[in-house]
């Protein structure tokens, strides 16, 4: 499958190898009717190995979720079979309902219906996301 096989949609390129299924779930691609192709372990000059996802529908992409999972992804926007735009991601400042806080002492563990909010902060020269409620780093507990 080549890019020109996508009519209107996206090619998500430079996904770090192994991350494509996480993105598939985060973007809700399983609920789409259109053609979705996941190509794993493609040889890459930049990354050694990479994954690629092709989506043949002009859906609204959750850029915050993508930027959180892998900010190095390139988004190729395809219109009428042609590459019309290349988008590069940056880590989003705020994540709403992308990750869940794993801190059992956090108010989000008991209070129903509230948004899971994480904010980008810089700690020791690294970008980390912290829960807006308890400040726990995403993915830790």
């Amino acid at each position: 499958m080549k890019i020109d096989e996508i009519h209107n949609g996206y090619v998500l390129d430079h996904i770090r190898a192994g991350r494509s299924m996480e993105i598939y779930r985060a973007l809700g691609l399983d609920s789409l009717d259109c053609t979705v192709a996941i190509i794993k372990n493609v040889p890459s000059r930049k990354l050694g190995k990479k994954d690629i996802i092709k989506i043949d529908e002009d859906i609204v992409l959750d850029l915050a979720a993508l930027g959180y999972i892998d900010p190095n992804i390139t988004i190729n926007v395809i219109k009428d079979g042609l590459l019309v735009e290349k988008q590069h991601l940056k880590p989003p400042a705020v994540l709403v309902n992308v990750v869940k806080c794993k801190n059992p002492r956090c108010i989000t563990s008991t209070e129903q219906e509230i948004d899971q909010i994480f904010r980008l902060s810089h700690s020791g020269g690294k970008d980390v996301y912290r829960c807006a409620y308890c400040e726990m780093q995403a993915g830790t507990q």
Partner: peptide, 10 residues
């Protein structure tokens, strides 16, 4: 005062 962290933010 609340036993859960972040309750006042909410």
């Amino acid at each position: 005062r609340h036993p859960k962290e972040g309750a006042p933010v909410l």
